[in-house]
Design a protein around this nucleic acid. Structure first.
Length: 352
DNA sequence: TCTGGGGTCCTCTGTCGA
DNA sequence: TCTGTCGACAGAGGACCC
């Protein structure tokens, strides 16, 4: 049989579960991993906390109101990265071709395996045995079907679906269920009277194209029909890196912003230099108090990675933009990254 | 209710040289 | 010499994802 078979493995409430591993006394309690500060958001909530209506990306202030007895933990990403490495090592020991997506998700190419679901049950058991963490698994003919299947019965789900079964099972689900249809697109679809995947799949292509453009309309229908042939690709090339900061309180003074930008540039350039990478495009990002986001960028003749090269460009972009309104977020980015090698005086020179 | 941080990708628009 | 076209590229904004 040469039919394609892909699995998606998704760790259950990953950050919370990792925290519970070292703080087992919190098991069974509503645990919420969220940043500190007045503008922090929730990173992950335990299933007990979700029963209070707490969810990811929710302002931490609101989570505290919904769940006043919740245990709030500050994220420890270094610890989560280490746990993620453990999980991915187990996955790799079972399946050769995998695509890691973030810290807690991975696609596995299972085509050609005699008993893919038995393989995935073995992977799941091995992860739980070696790390104490649980996950949900979806299996299907594509990444899209596998992904939606893994989300369908969390936690500890194990769902195997054909494309036709996915179409039937999720026909009544909201359009936002499939990846690629976010809140904005879902709202535009609702405004067009399309509130389920079934309706989207059978919508008139011409009417859809009139609203969304031909290419995007076709892509939306492909997703609603669970048509997907994206490969499981081992290598994800990083093409940009950035550092940004949301302030506890909006900032008006340009000199204060310049100082913060300098700090962000330093942090970013230390990372780039450590990784021996450099990029030609320097950009800044500014979010104003009305939540409008603005970017400014400049592309240089040569890749750069050091603060003395990135800093002046970023500062100039900031000064030219000015501060038309109070600023709530400032960021800096270097894009078009390429490998670089160390030169004679410790400077980074583009590798050939 | 008031929206993080760090990314990718897409679309539209303007510019520039062939 | 002037004009129109086209492709490549850069810049900006937005949507989306984990």
């Amino acid at each position: 049989m040469d039919a394609r078979c892909v699995a998606h493995l998704d760790m259950d409430a990953f950050y919370v579960s990792v925290e519970l591993r070292r703080r087992p006394e919190l098991r069974g309690r509503p645990v919420i991993v969220a940043g500190t500060g007045p503008r922090a958001v929730v990173t992950t909530a335990s299933y007990e906390a979700r029963r209070f209506g707490v969810g990811s990306a929710m302002p931490a202030v609101r989570a505290r109101r919904l769940c006043p007895d919740g245990v709030f933990l500050v994220p420890d990403f270094a610890y989560y990265r280490e746990a993620s490495r453990e999980v991915m090592a187990v996955v790799r020991s079972h399946v050769e071709s995998i695509e890691v997506v973030g810290l807690d998700e991975v696609y596995l190419e299972l085509s050609g395996l005699a008993v893919p679901d038995a393989t995935m049950r073995a992977v799941r058991e091995a992860i739980e045995e070696r790390t104490g963490l649980t996950c949900s698994v979806g299996i299907g003919p594509s990444k899209l079907v596998a992904k939606v299947a893994s989300d369908a019965e969390k936690p500890r789900g194990f769902v195997v679906l054909t494309r036709a079964q996915a179409c039937t099972r999720f026909a009544g689900a909201p359009c936002g269920l499939v990846p690629g249809i976010g809140p904005k697109t879902a709202e535009r679809l609702r405004a067009a009277g399309i509130d389920t995947l079934g309706k989207l799949a059978s919508a008139d292509p011409a009417e859809l194209a009139a609203r969304f453009g031909r290419r995007f309309a076709a892509e939306l229908q492909r997703r609603a029909r669970f048509e997907d042939d994206a490969p499981v690709s081992e290598q994800r090339k990083v093409i940009s890196e950035s550092r940004e900061l949301t302030f506890d309180h909006d900032i008006v003074e340009l000199t204060t912003l310049e100082r913060i930008l300098g700090d962000l540039v330093n942090r970013l350039c230390v990372a780039l230099t450590d990784q021996r990478r450099a990029g030609r495009t320097i950009g800044i990002k500014i979010r104003l108090d009305d939540f409008s986001t603005h970017t400014r960028a400049r592309t240089l003749a040569e890749p750069v990675s050091t603060a003395d090269r990135v800093g002046p460009v970023a500062l100039d972009l900031l000064r030219r933009f000015g501060t038309p309104r109070p600023v709530r977020l400032l960021g800096v980015r270097v894009a078009g990254l390429e490998p670089a090698r160390a030169g004679a005086e410790g400077q980074l020179i583009l590798a050939l």
